[in-house]
Amino acid sequence: MKQLEVQIMGQNYMLGCPENSEIRLLEAVHTVDSAMCKIRDAGKVKARDRIAVLAALNLAYQLLEPAPAPAPAPEQAPDAPDAASEASQAQLKALLERLDTALASPNPAH
């Protein structure tokens, strides 16, 4: 296994990387770094661990979003939206907003 030194939000990390997977790992590092820097630069959250949690949640949310369905052929009527899926998406979005708010508020314990 190869070792790569990478930088995320200005901090160095040594990561193990399977052979021939360096490009994929570096793309993942870039994605995480971009997500964390975006949250940090918004100025609402300062703690690195909170930024990491928010970035992880945002990236997981993006991964779980369903791929857009192809447009129906003109002779076909579009299917009715899946109400359960829409409700789940709405609940997840509400949860993420609550987490953003909770993590952005000052925590007297820290």
Rank of each mutant, 00 (worst) to 15 (best):
P72R: 07
R24T: 08
L63E: 14
K46D: 10
K46F: 07
V29I: 10
V29D: 00
L25P: 03
I8S: 00
I8V: 15
R48K: 10
A67T: 09
Q11V: 09
A56G: 04
L59S: 05
A60W: 12
P18D: 07
A35P: 02
A77W: 08
E97C: 03
K2Y: 08
S34F: 10
P70N: 09
K2P: 08
P18T: 02
K38H: 12
P68Q: 08
K2T: 14
M9Q: 08
I51Q: 05
V29Y: 01
D41Y: 03
V32L: 12
R50S: 06
P18M: 04
G16E: 15
A47P: 00
A55H: 00
A60D: 06
A90N: 02
L26Q: 15
Q76P: 00
E97K: 12
A55I: 01
A60C: 13
E97L: 10
Q89M: 12
E65A: 14
A109I: 00
M14G: 14
R50N: 07
M36V: 03
A77D: 13
Q89D: 09
L64H: 12
V45D: 02
R24E: 13
Q62W: 06
A87R: 12
G10P: 02
D82C: 04
A52F: 06
A102G: 07
L96M: 10
H110K: 10
Q7R: 12
Y61D: 13
A67S: 10
D41F: 02
L96F: 07
L95V: 03
L4C: 05
S105E: 13
N58K: 13
A35W: 08
D49R: 08
E5P: 02
V29L: 05
N107H: 10
A35Q: 07
T31N: 08
K2V: 13
L15F: 06
L59T: 00
M14L: 15
A90G: 00
M1H: 08
V32D: 04
A84L: 11
P72Y: 10
L95C: 07
P70V: 07
R98C: 01
D41R: 08
D33F: 04
P108R: 09
Q91W: 05
Y61E: 11
A109P: 00
P68M: 05
E65D: 14
L59K: 06
S21A: 12
T101F: 02
Q62C: 07
L64V: 00
Q62P: 03
Q76C: 10
Q91G: 03
P66Q: 07
Y13Q: 02
K2L: 15
Y61W: 11
K46A: 11
E19A: 15
S34T: 15
N58M: 11
K46T: 12
Q3V: 11
K46W: 01
N58V: 02
L4E: 04
K44I: 05
Y13M: 04
C17V: 05
C37S: 14
I23L: 13
M36H: 02
Q89T: 10
P108A: 04
E19F: 13
A102F: 00
D100A: 09
P81L: 05
